[in-house]
Design a protein around this nucleic acid. Structure first.
Lengths: 213, 213
DNA sequence: ATAAATCATTTTGTATACAATTATCTGATA
DNA sequence: TATCAGATAATTGTATACAAAATGATTTAT
C-alpha cells in the first residue's frame, strides 16, 4: 500500500480530520517514509480534491453543508444519466451482476441486523458494488472518473445514514426498482428512480450533518 | 511557470503527441530541471487524465473517437445543468459578465475575418469565458472541477471546428440564445439550448476526427 | 536453431542534503 | 502597550545519489 493510498484512507476514515494541517515531515514520520513519496501523494490528493493547499502547507479539505449539497446534486445528475444509459445498453451479464450485488446486499443487511455477522463497511461496499455495476453497464467509461471524485466525501458524512435499519431497507427497495427499470429498458424510469434514490441519500446526510460540524 | 503547467501546455498543443512515452529523464532534460519536480507533475497529470501509466513509464493519453463522444455527452449533461441553474440563480452582474464576454467574442470573430487582427487562440479564450461565466452563475462551485477535466481534450481535437467562419457565427448565435434564456430565467430553454450547442460542437469534432487519427 | 537463463542497461522509487522561502519569535522603539 | 525590524526557526522546493525493479541483450544448453 503506497503513500497515496494510506493517506487517502486515513482522511476518509477521519483519522486525519478536516482542516488538519499536513506537513510533509509529519506524514513522512507517520508512514515511515522520506518526504519524496509523500509529496507525490499530496499532489495527487490535491488533484482529487481531498486536500487543499494554501500558500504554504496542505490541509485536509473541509466540506461545508453547501458543498455536500452541491456535490450530491452533481452525483444525482450523473448517476441518473448512468442509469438511463444502462437501461439502453445493458447486456445479459450486466443484469446478472446487478442482481448478484443486490442479493448480497440484502443478505448482508439481514445478517447485520439478525446475527451481527457482518460489518457496516461490508454493507457499504456492496451498495457501492451495485452502483458501480450500473456505471459499468452504462458503457460510458468516463463516468467513473467523475463519480469516484464525488463518492470520496469522508465516510463520516455518510455513515449516520447507514446505521439506521429503516434507511437501509428503503435503500434496498430503491435498488430493486432501479434494477427493474433497467431490466425493462425503461430509461426515464431508471433515471427518475436513481435521482430519487440519491436525493434521498443526500437529505439523510444533510439532516444529520449538524451533529458533525 | 512550473513543471506541471509546462508539460500540460506541451500536451495540449500537441508538442507531446498522444501515445508518446514520457520518461522522467527526457522531461527533466527538456525543462532543465531535476527529476523530482517532474515526477510530481506527472502524478498530477495522471490524476487529471492527461497521461496514462503502464507498469513502467507514462504515456501521453490517447483519446479514441468513442472517448471523445462519451466525454462530450457528459459535458453536455453538466453544462446543460449549469445553464439551467444559472437561469435560476443569475444575478445582475452575471448577466453583465456574460454579455461582455459575448460582445468581445463577436468583436473578435469580426476582427479575425475582416482585418486578421486577432488569433484563433484569442477567440477560443473568449468562447471559454462565456462558458465559464455560466458555470459561475450556476452557483455550484463543484461544476468547474469536473468541466475543467472535460475541456482539456487536446486542442487539436477542437481546432478544426474553429477555423470555419460559418461554425463560429453559428456558435455565436447559440450563445445569444442561451444568454436570452438565462436572462428570462427560462431554465428548460437554457438547458435545451446549451445541450444543442455542445452536441453541435461534438458533431463537428467527430466529423473531422478521422483526419487526425 | 530455439528456449531458458544470466547479465547488462534502462528507468523508476526512495532517501538525503542543501537552498529558498515563509512563518514565528524577540526585542527595541515610539 | 503596540508595532516594526531583524533574527531564528520551520517548511517547502530542488538536486543528486543510490537502491530496486523492469526491460532488453547475450550466452549457454538442449
Amino acid at each position: 500500500m503506497n503513500a497515496y493510498t494510506q493517506i487517502k484512507k486515513a482522511i476518509l476514515h477521519g483519522e486525519l480530520p478536516p482542516k488538519m494541517r499536513l506537513t510533509e515531515e509529519f506524514l513522512a514520520d507517520k508512514l515511515q517514509l522520506s518526504r519524496t513519496p509523500i509529496r507525490e501523494a499530496l499532489k495527487q490528493l490535491e488533484s482529487e480534491g481531498l486536500t487543499s493547499s494554501m500558500k504554504r502547507g496542505v490541509r485536509v479539505r473541509h466540506y461545508t453543508k453547501e458543498d455536500i449539497k452541491q456535490i450530491y446534486d452533481l452525483r444525482t445528475l450523473i448517476e441518473g444519466y448512468a442509469a438511463s444509459q444502462a437501461s439502453f445498453h445493458r447486456k445479459h451479464q450486466d443484469l446478472k451482476d446487478m442482481e448478484t450485488a443486490n442479493e448480497s446486499y440484502e443478505q448482508a443487511i439481514n445478517d447485520y441486523f439478525q446475527t451481527g455477522q457482518t460489518t457496516v463497511e461490508h454493507i457499504l461496499e456492496l451498495n457501492q458494488r451495485f452502483h458501480d455495476n450500473i456505471i459499468k453497464a452504462s458503457q460510458n467509461k468516463h463516468i467513473y472518473t467523475h463519480i469516484s471524485k464525488m463518492v470520496v466525501l469522508p465516510l463520516i458524512f455518510r455513515s449516520f445514514y447507514w446505521f439506521n435499519e429503516n434507511q437501509m431497507r428503503l435503500s434496498l427497495e430503491s435498488h430493486k426498482i432501479i434494477l427493474g427499470a433497467i431490466r425493462e429498458q425503461d430509461m426515464d424510469r431508471a433515471r427518475a428512480a436513481m435521482h430519487e434514490h440519491i436525493y434521498h441519500g443526500r437529505d439523510q446526510v444533510l439532516l444529520h450533518i449538524d451533529d458533525i460540524e
